[in-house]
Design a protein around this nucleic acid. Sequence first.
DNA 1: TAGTGGTCTAGACCACTAC
DNA 2: TAGTGGTCTAGACCACTAA
Lengths: 246, 246
Amino acid sequence: MTRRHQQIAEALRRAITDGDLPVGGTLPSETELAAAHGVSRGTVRQALAALLAEGLIGSRQGARHIVLSTAPSQSFTELRSFAQWARAGGHSPGGRVLESARGAADRGEAALLQLAPGAGVLRVLRLRTLDGAPVLLERTVYADWIAEAVEALPADCESVTQALLDSHGLVFAHGEHHLDAVAAGTADARELRVRRGSPLLRVRRTTTTAEGRPVETSDDRYRPGAVVFTVRNSTQANPLARTPAG
Amino acid sequence: MTRRHQQIAEALRRAITDGDLPVGGTLPSETELAAAHGVSRGTVRQALAALLAEGLIGSRQGARHIVLSTAPSQSFTELRSFAQWARAGGHSPGGRVLESARGAADRGEAALLQLAPGAGVLRVLRLRTLDGAPVLLERTVYADWIAEAVEALPADCESVTQALLDSHGLVFAHGEHHLDAVAAGTADARELRVRRGSPLLRVRRTTTTAEGRPVETSDDRYRPGAVVFTVRNSTQANPLARTPAG
DNA sequence: TAGTGGTCTAGACCACTAC
DNA sequence: TAGTGGTCTAGACCACTAA
């Protein structure tokens, strides 16, 4: 079921990305929007909060909302799924497991995955491609309780996230990401087809379920030029935007 | 004036970071929190929305809010200047202008700053330090209408953002950031004291006022190891999007 | 089934902006 | 000064979780 506030947000989003509302222009007042959609002002504010969080609009007390950007923002659910994100951008995702081995969690891994030190984990080295070109080398450590399900996946599984959702109802709901730059090591260089020592964008991330249970932690290295990360933010916080975590 | 919802958010934030509410634990119900603070449920929900946006807590319909992380938010969700960010982390920020020159905006700069092609701009090369160590080389292009104010600042100005706020009431309200990795060039290597060709984290950003007017666009290069960017996100709302280059 | 969060209403007052 | 968004209230109903 689509909620009223989602419908209103989508209508405004379309008006902005279609150019009906130019950058720097103002939106109708909340009262006008409420009347136009036959809802209360609170519902309109919930819709506007979503657009504020996306960085599409800005707001100041006393002045109407303004359009900050007409560029469509990437959908949330595609964020941690490489495959879904790629498809949303019109690209063809691919992937291949290079190595897969069980092992014991070291101190850091155990802490990140909230496991006892020495607990069993599954380490997977996976190469990801975009339109056939290698763009990302993932070194992922899975918690023991999901290891078997991951091992059961085909080596060229296109979307691990989708597969685990389908087979086990597992939802990747929350993530923490740390971004920096590193020099390509031997394996990085070979698989990503860059020179050893050349710059790579590294994203170390830990993903948890909706219940806050850690599922995996990963060291992802992106070939430069292939992918750019975009962040929009504001000094002003902040929104009532909320949707069920599914 | 601090609002009721801000006070409640801060109280909950403190309870979480102090460890009174452990990771994986649940918060009191919204009704209980409302009663405890003597406010309506709507106000409690406004406070919880702030913590959700920070990634400190998670929520699912039907279940109580859960604690996801006890680490204070250092997330990218809030736009902060280098100086603000440094001080928040307990570090001492510094800076020095290496070069400053007027010029004409090229095609790309004019588009980013919403100026006519060929309009006057101010280009500044600035080295930023953290506790005395060089960590960031900024190549910033300022729009013509603010150029004079920037030129009037001392070369070792610690916080340009703060200075422009004090002198002109100028607020940097919104930012769009693109992150990738690049090899250090000659100037990068010299100023950041790294080897030429070594990996740097590059952040290209454009900052605008609360009214949506672009103020500056910048190419920032971070020395690896000195700085890590952190992003927390979830399926519910997130500030991060990946976009293919080109 | 009881409790919880998600949605929505119909008001009210205040701080601030734009004119 | 009129209009706008920010805050807050006191309800109501529904979808979902957990026991």
